[in-house]
Design a protein around this nucleic acid. Structure first.
Length: 241
DNA sequence: GCCCAGGAGCATA
DNA sequence: TATGCTCATGGG
């Protein structure tokens, strides 16, 4: 199934998602209490807000956003207590054990504390106005293709599609593939890039919509196919009904 | 108790 | 290239 048609149908059904959430703006007009900003695409980011996105992208690796959100709240509160702006400098002045404790709720906290330090050192060294290159991000310890692409798209507004486990599952089901015949990351990303307009706003919304769709309908166990907005074009129900 | 969640590094073959 | 293991909390 064509990914642009999926995008159109999901957008029609769920509406704009307002990614990436910014807790630092959660009290501002136009933002939800969780920091989403539907209808306000690609806000002009402060340094601390961009680093919040980068931090969230690392913390959410194989982890639910509710657990990540708790960690982000603790990190932002700790920065306020120390009277320093949230950013690479804040992370680098923490002991690793101290940082790990703040992000405990995200799981893998020892590994993620190390990942955040590596990223903070990279950011402190300075990136040019265009932002980091993908290969620069991938060279960092703890940054793989999905995290790198999330940072490029959501923190730097670059036209890069993010592929995640949800994307794999949804498109595997749409095409009637089983779980042991998946695409590689690059294969599915190339398909997205070939079928969607090369617009970071579309890529932003597309990935956010896939996440919402996976949560509401296309869950790994007991998917809710009867009310699925994509059911007329999906081969999963026919094969597994 | 189980499985899953907005992955990535590493060892092994 | 492709599996398999490890990392770890919190919700359903």
């Amino acid at each position: 199934m064509n990914s642009f048609k999926v995008y159109q149908q999901l957008l029609d059904h769920y509406g704009p998602q307002g990614w990436w959430p910014l807790l630092q703006r959660s009290s501002q007009a136009g933002y939800t209490p969780d920091g989403y900003h539907p209808g306000q695409y690609a806000p002009d980011l402060q340094i601390s807000e961009r680093f919040e996105i980068i931090t969230g992208a690392i913390l959410t690796q194989n982890t639910s956003w509710t657990n990540v959100r708790r960690s982000l709240v603790k990190l932002l509160e700790a920065a306020v207590r120390r009277n320093v702006p949230f950013g690479p400098g804040f992370v680098l002045r923490l002991e690793v054990a101290e940082l790990a404790e703040l992000i405990r709720s995200s799981g893998y906290f020892n590994q993620k504390a190390k990942k955040l330090r590596c990223m903070a050192e990279f950011c402190r060294a300075g990136v040019n106005r265009a932002g980091p290159g993908r290969s620069q991000l991938l060279a960092l310890w703890g940054i793989g293709p999905e995290t790198a692409d999330s940072i490029l798209l959501y923190a730097y507004n670059r036209p890069v599609c993010v592929v995640d486990a949800y994307s794999m599952r949804i498109f595997a089901r749409l095409n009637g593939r089983n779980s042991n015949a998946k695409w590689s990351y690059g294969e599915l990303q190339a398909a997205f890039h070939g079928q969607l307009p090369a617009d970071p706003q579309v890529y932003n919304e597309f990935h956010a919509l896939l996440v919402e769709h996976a949560k509401q309908h296309c869950s790994s166990k007991n998917p809710k196919c009867s009310k699925c907005p994509l059911k007329t074009d999906c081969m999963f129900l026919a094969q597994n009904g």
